[in-house]
Computed example of a mutant assay.
Amino acid sequence: MVFKTSGMIIDSGTVITRLPPTAYSAPRDKFREGMSKYPLTNPLDIFDTCYDLSNF
């Protein structure tokens, strides 16, 4: 089970959503699949879905 916890905190003022790696990897992989025609660029810390769109 990915989300096994006794509670949850929702901060509606936070612009970044953090998920456990096992919960994050599937949607990240699907997003990358949909963006496959665009070149990935070097990740910036936790941001591993960064693309170089300067030529588009």
Score class of each variant (00 low, 15 high):
40 L>V: 04
27 P>R: 00
34 G>L: 01
30 K>D: 08
32 R>P: 01
23 A>M: 01
56 F>K: 15
44 L>R: 09
39 P>D: 02
8 M>Y: 10
50 C>Y: 15
10 I>R: 09
22 T>M: 09
13 G>K: 14
2 V>L: 09
19 L>Y: 02
13 G>D: 10
3 F>W: 13
54 S>I: 07
29 D>Q: 11
52 D>Y: 06
20 P>T: 07
49 T>P: 06
19 L>R: 01
13 G>S: 09
9 I>W: 06
5 T>V: 13
42 N>K: 14
7 G>P: 01
27 P>G: 00
33 E>R: 07
3 F>L: 11
24 Y>I: 02
25 S>E: 11
17 T>R: 09
32 R>L: 09
52 D>Q: 06
45 D>R: 11
40 L>E: 10
48 D>K: 08
26 A>V: 09
20 P>H: 08
38 Y>S: 01
44 L>H: 10
25 S>H: 12
10 I>C: 07
28 R>P: 01
40 L>A: 06
53 L>Q: 06
48 D>Q: 09
16 I>A: 11
7 G>Q: 06
46 I>F: 14
15 V>G: 15
31 F>T: 04
49 T>V: 15
45 D>Q: 14
20 P>N: 05
39 P>A: 02
6 S>G: 15
18 R>C: 12
54 S>T: 13
48 D>N: 12
12 S>A: 13
55 N>T: 15
10 I>Q: 08
26 A>R: 07
2 V>P: 12
20 P>W: 02
24 Y>V: 03
46 I>T: 15
9 I>S: 12
43 P>F: 05
47 F>Q: 03
18 R>L: 14
16 I>S: 10
2 V>M: 06
48 D>H: 09
10 I>Y: 07
12 S>V: 14
54 S>F: 05
50 C>Q: 15
20 P>D: 06
35 M>F: 00
27 P>S: 00
37 K>N: 06
43 P>D: 07
36 S>A: 11
52 D>L: 05
32 R>N: 06
42 N>G: 11
21 P>K: 03
25 S>V: 12
12 S>G: 12
17 T>H: 08
2 V>K: 12
3 F>C: 10
4 K>Y: 09
36 S>W: 01
53 L>C: 10
31 F>N: 02
9 I>F: 09
54 S>D: 06
19 L>P: 00
52 D>V: 05
45 D>L: 11
20 P>G: 04
31 F>P: 01
24 Y>C: 03
47 F>Y: 11
55 N>A: 14
5 T>A: 13
39 P>C: 01
20 P>R: 07
3 F>R: 11
41 T>M: 09
24 Y>A: 10
49 T>C: 13
26 A>M: 04
14 T>M: 15
25 S>N: 07
34 G>A: 01
37 K>D: 08
43 P>R: 08
27 P>D: 00
26 A>H: 05
5 T>S: 11
9 I>L: 13
53 L>P: 05
24 Y>F: 14
40 L>R: 11
40 L>S: 07
25 S>P: 00
55 N>H: 14
30 K>M: 07
43 P>E: 04
